[in-house]
Write a protein that binds this DNA or RNA. Structure first.
Lengths: 145, 145
DNA sequence: AAACTAAATGCAAACGATTTGCAATAAGGA
DNA sequence: TCCTTATTGCAAATCGTTTGCATTTAGTTT
């Protein structure tokens, strides 16, 4: 989703477009291929707009999540990671354990999963299919060392 | 895995079988079908052995994780959830969002996933396929209300 | 353009989950 | 039974995140 579209969505939802928010959106956009922490977002935001504060970052992340514009997960230590949602059609991700880069792929065995849950009278709400490993760039770097 | 086997593994790894540990193993075994928090484990442990302490629970959970006997994830709020690893062959889980119950299924599209990662020069380390929803019992309960 | 008002911010302090330092205790071999 | 070292319990520290409150600001209204 383009930044302009994100700004429009916030505005339409009745939120003010403060400098802190514009800066956060632009940073999120910049990192749209990577899962990042709130702290990393803050650091980047401060480059545009030094006054930005971690509290504000968190508050706006919560807000974006509420608008379903932001995807939140947690790393193995329980720390939260964020990324703008993908607006394209259904797909899943490969996440690099080294640099956090996220690559997408279209495959999803949803049909099969539906059959399984029906067989168990399990009301399927969500499914999560994610691959973890080392992306080609990081793998190259490791081999060079 | 049977409790006795777990105890054996700990002992073999050079750890002492304290009452706190025995009590934790038995509680984990009791909850082997459910993801539970450290707090819930403590509460149960204290029924057997009232002196048990949250610090000890955490320390032993870390230890069991290190022995690869324990599986750790986090819920949507980042709180950690634990469960003994399954010793049976490769499978995935459906997790009830209501009661935490975990059911297993054998299906896994690993072949397909391998093809995808190879195509992307992505070195696959781990994959996660998990279904979330409402289990048949909870669904029944909800409908009764 | 100045005034207004509710929303948004920044700070410091609170928070909950988890970890750590340290002195006291207990497991399991000698 | 004794001894040594691992383990425990407690309190305090830590980390990421959230909240209360006074101040500031966006975006409207005059």
């Amino acid at each position: 989703m383009k930044i302009h579209e994100l700004e429009k969505r916030m505005k339409e939802a009745g939120f003010k477009l403060t400098n802190q928010r514009l800066s956060l959106l632009s940073v999120l956009d910049k990192f749209s291929e990577t899962m990042v922490t709130a702290e990393e977002l803050l650091t980047e935001c401060q480059k545009d707009y030094p006054a930005t504060n971690i509290t504000t970052v968190y508050r706006n992340l919560i807000l974006l999540e509420g608008l379903r514009l932001l995807h939140k997960t947690s790393d193995s230590k329980g720390k939260s990671l964020y990324k703008l949602v993908c607006s394209d059609e259904h797909h899943h991700h490969m996440v690099c354990l080294d640099c956090g880069k996220v690559e997408s792929f279209d495959f999803c065995p949803l049909e099969e999963l539906r059959k399984i849950t029906e067989r168990n009278n399990f009301r399927l709400v969500e499914h999560n299919l994610e691959l973890y490993g080392v992306c080609s760039e990081c793998d190259k770097k490791i081999n060079e060392e």
